[in-house]
Each structure stands twice: as structure tokens, then as C-alpha cells.
């Protein structure tokens, strides 16, 4: 697999690119996952709020719970980049 024509700079640049790609995947995929999780919670939360206004604070909180997933993704991405 090793291409003889590759210089050190090219290797370094492609490593940098791979890191950026990895960071992007980490944020992007976890973002999708959080979105899917929040989708169901969010619709249930809106339903519950329509029934009873008082639960608004609680369901708002339940809605942000899956955000942990994307935050872990963001942490991984930041650690990759810096």
C-alpha cells in the first residue's frame, strides 16, 4: 500500500485530513443519534405539555437528556483537533 512517491509533507497533510474527517464523523454521527432520540421525546413532550402546562419544565429537561450523546461526540472531536 505504501506509495513510494509520497513525501513527508504529503503524509502529514493526509494525516491532518484524516483527523479532521474523524472529528467531523464524531460530531455528525452523534448529532444524528441525538436528533433521533430527541425526536420521540420531543413529540411526547409536546403532547404531555398540551395535556398539562405544568410539566413544561420537566419535559424540556427530558428533551435535552440525549444531548449527552452529541456532547461526547463534540468532546472527542475537540480532542482530535487540538
Amino acid at each position: 500500500m505504501v506509495d513510494v512517491g509520497m513525501t513527508l509533507e504529503m503524509v502529514e497533510a493526509s494525516q491532518l485530513g484524516m483527523r479532521a474527517l474523524g472529528a467531523a464523523l464524531a460530531v455528525g454521527l452523534t448529532g444524528i443519534a441525538s436528533g433521533i432520540a430527541e425526536m420521540t421525546i420531543g413529540s411526547a413532550a409536546v403532547g404531555a405539555t398540551a395535556e398539562n402546562r405544568d410539566v413544561f419544565g420537566l419535559v424540556l429537561l427530558l428533551t435535552v437528556i440525549p444531548e449527552t450523546i452529541v456532547i461526547f461526540g463534540l468532546v472527542v472531536a475537540l480532542l482530535l483537533l487540538f
Binding site: E67, T68, I71, F72, L74, V75, L78
Partner: peptide
């Protein structure tokens, strides 16, 4: 414990 990393991550975003 790792969940507290959001203090940084959300802020940085």
C-alpha cells in the same frame, strides 16, 4: 463524570 465535559463542550460551541 465525563458528562461534566459538557461544561466545556457546550461553551466552546
Amino acid at each position: 463524570v465525563l458528562s461534566y465535559a459538557r461544561l466545556v463542550a457546550v461553551g466552546l460551541s
